[in-house]
Amino acid sequence: MSERTPVPIGTAESAFDRRRRLFGVMFAWLCGAATLVGVAALVVLLVDVLIDGLPRLDVQLLTSFASRFPERAGVRAALAGSIWLLVLTAVISFPVSVAAAIYLEEYAPKGWITKVIQTNIANLAGVPSIVYGILGLALFVRAMGLDRSILSGALTLSLLVMPVIIMASQEAIRAVPPTIREAAYGLGATRWQVVSYQVLPMAFPGILTGTILALSRAVGETAPLILVGAVGFVAFTPRGIMDQFTVLPLQIYSWISRPQDEFRELAAAGIIVLLLLLLTMNAAAIILRNRALARR
């Protein structure tokens, strides 16, 4: 072997070494900048809304109904409607979606029919929400005679979020290690026992996160609800699922389309309320997930 001249480390950087180091640094900056775009947009939105809306954000806003006079108007009906709709949509879509996900992952034979169903669900998740609105109008409002009720709205929104919840749940169920299933089957557990005692508890945090994210999207929906008959001006809080209703995004829209500046401030305040509602939901998702994870 030939003798090597010892080279101290850090003294022989070639052009190639310099270039790849530079690329590394540039790549990191580029990714950082991309992150900033999203953050900056959010900050601008928040600041703008807060400046306009904060002066109007008070208890009166939450306790008053819509009104012709901006100083007397509030989001009471819209907030109540949104919460009603949210809860009812969750109650309808969660069990159906999770059951569908369980069927597709654990029971369905792996044939072409399952593949067709699977592809359809993925496509449904991408269907524009207005289309669900048309379906809701034809099916729930007219054909089933549910009228322009909260129930019609919740059923329509359920159709909208179900594909998303199904796919998120399937993902969570698939993430349960196969070794856990094998272990349970190996002990003489039936399929139902394996699913209900091992797979579902392990998949639950993921299912929950997916559900709450999908519901957050539903809370912000306007278009399908206009079609199924949510109205911009409601002067009462709903008392049952067959009542008429309005929701926050619709209330915001109806205010923002008015010429007076006061209504625009009111709309900004409404946006803050909507954002707070979404924030609460996401916080709930995180808390519930952490609690489920801690129980392991």
């Binding site: 070794t179 094998e182 349970a184 190996g186 003489g188 557990a189 005692y197």
Partner: peptide
């Protein structure tokens, strides 16, 4: 006819619940 697998695959539960799972299910 029971089975022990290649990689240890306990359930994400307590030691007691791991052993008790089989008897409970059966």
């Amino acid at each position: 006819i029971g089975m022990v697998f290649q990689k240890p695959n306990p359930f994400p539960k307590s030691i007691y619940d791991n052993v008790a799972f089989g008897p409970r299910m059966n």
